[in-house]
């Protein structure tokens, strides 16, 4: 059994590593043409002619490259994570915590709203006919256009002051929730409707109440659908939180870090923040996946 499991893991890791190696190779190769103008300009000013290997080496070690090489990004990332104390504004961990706070609050709020709306759609006929089209329309509005308005409204109403948190956290949370409620809504509607007619007939033969059919059948039947949509929702909430950091004049958070770095011509910092965000997304999705496995085990899922 352990040997089989290990074999299984090797089989799934090998393709991932292959794709990763291919991406790195293409990325390294791309730095040469992408940074060609910078490198050629420097060489012309210095009055030297470069061999191919010199050009390649310089393309991958510019301080402000158009496209940094992977190892430069890794270095900046390492510096941002390990070289600064967590309380420092130059620490990526500090900014990641700020972003994750809003992501998590938005995710929880979005998931609750999504579940509540799904219950409404499944149990109330009027909502069944009215809510879904509006939910779909809500997702067609570009969030980048909507985000500044949400920020403005949150500041104007001062909800945060009344709740005792920063207004900025409120607007980021709302934007994250706006993006993450939708997958939960769709998944839960499908999940709550997953039991077939025979299952419902069977409950009828036992004269089960509406509450009992919900608690004993519909709710547990919806769990696999819920977790599939929670994984999408947590990633969407992270995107929402980052987008929420762009138009607010925020100085904290991975989104603010990316914006500031790009405005002040520090591509290495921008890329490092980007990869930090990707790493955070990965960790969040893994966490939801871990929760799902624990629930699956408790519910006797095969394997």
């Amino acid at each position: 059994m352990p040997r089989a499991a290990r074999g299984c893991r090797m089989r799934s890791v090998l393709p991932v590593l292959t794709v990763l190696a291919a991406i790195l190779a293409v990325w390294y190769a791309a730095t040469i043409p992408m940074n060609a103008r910078l490198v050629d300009g420097q060489a012309a000013r210095a009055g030297v002619t470069l061999t191919f290997s010199e050009r390649a080496a310089r393309s991958m070690s510019l301080t402000r490259p158009v496209l940094p090489a992977p190892h430069q990004v890794a270095q900046a990332l390492w510096q941002g994570i390990a070289a600064e104390p967590v309380s420092s504004k130059r620490s990526l961990v500090y900014h990641a915590i700020v972003t994750v706070e809003a992501t998590f609050a938005g995710f929880v709020l979005g998931a609750l709203v999504g579940i509540a709306l799904a219950l409404g759609i499944v149990y109330v006929r009027v909502l069944d006919l009215t809510v879904m089209p509006w939910a779909v329309i809500s997702q067609t509005i570009p969030i980048v256009a909507l985000a500044p308005m949400i920020v403005l409204l949150a500041n104007a109403t001062g909800i945060g002051d009344r709740l005792g948190v920063e207004n900025r956290l409120v607007s980021k949370t709302l934007i994250a929730a706006y993006l993450s409620f939708f997958p939960v809504l769709v998944g839960m509607v499908k999940g709550l409707r997953a039991p077939d007619a025979m299952q419902l007939d069977l409950l009828r033969t036992w004269n089960a109440s509406g509450w009992q059919s919900f608690a004993k059948l519909r709710l547990p039947a919806s769990v696999p659908y819920l977790f599939a949509s929670l994984k999408v929702a947590i990633a969407a909430a992270l995107v929402g939180a980052i987008v929420g950091e762009l138009p607010t004049g925020a100085v904290d958070g991975l989104g603010a870090r990316m914006l500031v770095a790009s405005q002040f011509g520090q591509p290495l910092l921008m890329w490092a923040a980007l990869f930090a965000a990707a790493g955070v997304a990965g960790v969040l999705i893994l966490a939801v996946g871990g929760l799902q496995r624990a629930v699956d085990r408790a519910m006797g899922v095969r394997g």
Partner: peptide
């Protein structure tokens, strides 16, 4: 169909 709940 037996219609047993897979989670029970």
């Amino acid at each position: 169909a037996a219609g047993l709940y897979p989670w029970r």
